Simulated scan of single mutants.
Amino acid sequence: MSKFSIPVEAALKVIGGKWKVVILCHLFKDKYRTSELKRRMPNVSQKMLVQQLRELEQDGVIRRVLYHQAPPKVEYELTDYGRSLKSTMNVLCDWGEQHLQNEHLKNSF
């Protein structure tokens, strides 16, 4: 028996959290080191960024790629499973754009 009463709960367990969707949006464009993601997301703390990256990795959505060199280099990229979120993310971004326009209209009166 599943611990979720409806499927959206399972989805939110994976992509829920303040920064996970933002991380995914960046990783749809390219793979990044932690420091590069932090520069693109200046409002997230280093601790929170690392925590969210680890959770996405544990859920199989992203992978941590370690390059054995001196100094060591680590990058994060989407897995095939993570890339399967692309259409969902596009719909979410479209809705966010509409929401911003609605907010702009409400605030212009």
Rank of each mutant, 00 (worst) to 15 (best):
I15E: 03
E36D: 11
L100G: 10
P7S: 07
L85W: 05
K3T: 14
H104T: 08
V91R: 13
G60E: 09
F4D: 02
P71C: 14
L100R: 15
N90M: 11
Y32I: 00
V61A: 06
G82W: 01
V8T: 10
A70I: 15
D59L: 03
P71D: 12
S87N: 12
P72S: 15
Y81V: 03
L56A: 05
D59V: 02
Y67S: 06
D59W: 10
K73R: 14
L37W: 04
L37Q: 00
W95A: 13
Y32H: 13
T88V: 15
E36H: 08
I62E: 05
D80F: 06
S2Q: 06
D30N: 09
P7R: 10
F4R: 03
E97A: 06
R33L: 09
P7A: 09
V21A: 10
L27I: 04
Q98C: 13
Y81P: 01
H99P: 00
H68E: 13
A70S: 14
N43P: 01
Y32F: 15
R39I: 08
L24Q: 00
Y67P: 00
S35Y: 10
Q52W: 07
G60A: 10
M41D: 06
H99Q: 12
R33M: 14
K47Q: 04
K73I: 13
R33F: 08
L49M: 00
I15L: 08
I62A: 07
V14G: 03
S35V: 13
K13P: 02
T79H: 07
E57I: 04
G82T: 07
D94H: 13
Q101D: 08
Y67N: 06
N43S: 12
Y81C: 01
E75Q: 13
